[in-house]
């Protein structure tokens, strides 16, 4: 029997790393841990594999400043050193901000905050359309559920924290439900707005900034 010590890496997934799918991220991280020569703990079944857990999936194409990955080591290594070794082995766009001993479980996650930046020739008109869009009592969108595609009203799930205009960019901060109970991908919101808005725009950025627990504390 090996020791097993739980660690959690908080990392960003930005730039070209946003094109790494959730499944590929798992493989990519396994290889980084091997390159970093960290003593990873493997499951003990018939087909042993490296234990890795990502708390919250991120949609392909979205960026994040706060992804988390849980893993186990068979030796105690200071978190700071684990972070440094991982960062030396990771590709551009994946960068560990902190390695901690996990406090909350994935099941405790309740919501996430996103920053969305839209580029448009007429930002003012786009902002006005956004206000009307967000004020609707009902926004029906197709969403993939365990039982196939289902039409749901996403309006009550969207909390607009703030919105601002700068040169050519319309920036929105959103809070969306996340975790096991209810989950809404930011891409569904931008798709819904794309269908609604008459003013053409392109998405410059969709980035997850923070993950919160059901109790309101930041997930860590």
């Amino acid at each position: 029997m090996y020791n097993r010590i739980n660690y959690r890496a908080v990392f960003e997934k930005t730039g070209s790393a946003k094109y790494i799918s959730h499944l590929d991220l798992n493989r990519c991280m396994q290889r980084a841990i091997r390159r970093a020569d960290l003593p990873a703990w493997y499951t003990e079944g018939f087909h042993p594999h490296m234990y890795l857990m990502f708390s919250l999936a991120l949609s392909l194409g979205a960026e994040s400043m706060c992804e988390t990955m849980d893993f186990r080591l068979t030796e105690s290594i200071p978190p700071q050193e684990v972070m440094e070794r991982l960062n030396a082995a990771l590709p551009e766009g994946l960068k560990v901000h902190a390695v901690v001993f996990p406090k909350y479980a994935a099941a405790d996650i309740g919501s996430a905050v996103y920053r969305v930046e839209l580029e448009s020739s007429d930002v003012q008109a786009l902002a006005a359309e956004w206000d009307n869009f967000a004020a609707q009592p009902e926004i029906l969108m197709e969403k993939k559920t365990k039982r196939g595609m289902k039409e749901i009203n996403i309006a009550p799930m969207i909390t607009v924290l703030s919105a601002e205009q700068t040169e050519g960019i319309f920036r929105i901060f959103l809070r969306l439900p996340a975790g096991n109970e209810a989950n809404l991908n930011v891409s569904i919101v931008t798709d819904a707005f794309k269908k609604y808005a008459e003013q053409p725009f392109s998405i410059v950025k969709a980035i997850r900034e923070k993950i919160f627990c059901l109790n309101g504390e930041e997930f860590s």
Partner: peptide, 9 residues
């Protein structure tokens, strides 16, 4: 899309 974006280790 990762096929076309480079940036691999």
């Amino acid at each position: 899309p990762a096929r076309y974006m480079g940036g691999e280790v």
